[in-house]
Write a protein that binds this DNA or RNA. Structure first.
Lengths: 306, 306
DNA sequence: CCAAACCGTGAGACAAATTCATAATCTTCA
DNA sequence: TGAAGATTATGAATTTGTCTCACGGTTTGG
């Protein structure tokens, strides 16, 4: 049996119009076409779909089953078509985000909260587990936005600068290094360093400071949650290096000291990577703007990137 | 956008097979046809359905929405086709019943209980409200079986005899008429008659006895439920005429007397009317057989109709 | 870097749906 | 009942759309 949407629409129209002639008009085809169509269906199914003995044409038992199917299915199809239209117009879409920097959750959540209110039809999600190969995943359309601090020249991928940040040394105010105006790589040699449980290549302390200087901390303790890291630091179980937007809340606390890395401090820049054809989508532009401006409110007063 | 089931099946197959070539094999068409089909859909929808940058071919956001639709819809269509097959084979079907005689509920319910166990896929129902025009409704396929005691010669309608019954006079054993061996029309002239709330043309007392004799009871009280009628009769608030299968349970009770109407008693025959093309359907034959044999168990010992 | 596997495209073959013209039926009203 | 009007059915021709064939282009993996 070769059922098609056309047939369902036909059944529905004939039922509603109460006859072939009127239904044909409503469907913008001839009455003859409908007659042929119904006959074809009935031949294939081997069942009469309408009771011809009566006027107006009424559905038979089999016809009623088909009508019920039509009433369940056709609205879904229409909903899908509306959905696709939204997708094309850019009103709806998908925004699955991969973040290479673990601490980015801190500013990303508030940004996404704002975003979701403005774009309720966009499917927002943060995809865990592919921080390593985030950019390939972006190219394969497995994700739609990657937050990264290492822009690469890739075809079809745009890197939009978001904001600068400073990885900052954090320690208990009772810690010996609290006496120094800034810390250097050597200062870590006899310290317990608390980090997120990710590869060294994605930790600023290592990429910017310790690895170049070939310094290894006395020990490393990996902790998942930012709040727990700060707790351990406060109780002097180790020291940490965190982005400035994270330490904002502890910067002026009596329990902590924050110090720049090296005399001048280190500045890094975060980027959002997107597929070129989507960078200018309205919702994408919006989330990029939010990600450029909102995190600044969590940092020390500073100048936005032009 | 001109979506068809074919497209949904295609999307599903390509997704499952992970490529056009394999999907084509599975669908028994060429890879080229699939390529054309997908292209056509994408052109119409204005959206890419697959991510071509990657191997194996992956669904885009829009494609995923289509796949979700396919997974919801296709099983329903298959279920419907199975349903129709059942309808054709006669395993399933509709058995909507109209009864012209109000008291028939008494034997019909047990019959339908038995029937439903044997034919779980048949949609059984008793349609109220069309007792007047039951036969036209049967012809228009609004119902599928009519219980009637007045067979008519109608084209395309079969009347199958079910069983004979006797309308029986029922009164309190304290009632004066209890003294008589049988009752006549004249006996009703000063009685309160309790009947079902239906037209006189459908009450045996009137059609068989009172109307021909032009006798009017002193008063008439209409009551819906058989049990309530018997209650009122027992407390001597009136007399009634009920089919023998109804009075079976009170026939030997000390509270009631049952008497034949007229010296010889009156015998009527019930028929089941069905559309000729359905009379021989397996399930229809079964319900007819049940309706011929089961009610006898409620009556006094008697001989089935040959 | 080459071979194999895979996907895309255009032309032509083929199938299916629609239209046109008209016949057959059913309804209604005098 | 009979005729007019409305409605549905049918057959042939036409149009539309889908599929196959053949081949070119692209990606993948040894």
């Amino acid at each position: 049996m070769h059922l098609e949407f056309r047939h369902l629409r036909t059944i529905k129209a004939i039922h509603e119009a109460g006859g072939l002639a009127r239904a044909a008009e409503q469907l913008h085809i001839t009455q003859s076409a409908l007659s042929h169509q119904v006959k074809g269906l009935e031949d294939q199914a081997g069942v009469e779909l309408f009771v011809r003995r009566s006027k107006p044409l009424r559905l038979s038992v089999a016809g009623q089953k088909l009508l019920a199917l039509a009433n369940r299915i056709l609205p879904e199809v229409e909903a899908l078509e509306a959905d696709l239209k939204g997708l094309i117009s850019g009103r709806s879409g998908r925004l699955h985000i991969a973040i290479e920097c673990h601490a980015c959750f801190e500013w990303l959540f508030p940004v996404l909260e704002l975003f979701r209110k403005a774009w309720p039809d966009v499917d927002v999600d943060i995809r865990p587990g592919l921080a390593f190969g985030a950019l390939p995943a972006l190219m394969r359309e497995e994700v739609d936005l990657v937050v990264s601090s290492d822009p690469e020249k890739l075809p079809g991928i745009d890197f939009t600068p978001l904001f600068d940040y400073e990885p900052v040394f954090v320690a208990s105010s009772r810690h010996p290094l609290a006496q120094k105006a800034f810390v250097t790589a050597e200062d870590f040699r006899d310290q317990t360093l608390i980090t997120y449980p990710v590869d060294r290549s994605r930790l600023d302390v290592f990429t910017e400071l310790l690895s170049p200087a070939k310094v290894e901390p006395a020990s490393i303790r990996q902790v998942e949650l930012t709040a727990v890291i700060l707790l351990l630091v406060a109780s002097n179980r180790g020291v940490a290096v965190l982005p400035d937007w994270v330490v904002r809340e502890v910067r002026y606390s009596a329990d902590y000291v924050t110090r720049p890395l090296t005399a001048g401090g280190i500045t890094k820049r975060l980027y959002a990577a997107t597929r070129s054809e989507e960078t200018t989508l309205p919702y994408m532009a919006h989330v990029l703007r939010l990600a450029r401006t909102e995190p600044l409110k969590l940092q020390k007063p500073s100048v936005p990137i032009a």
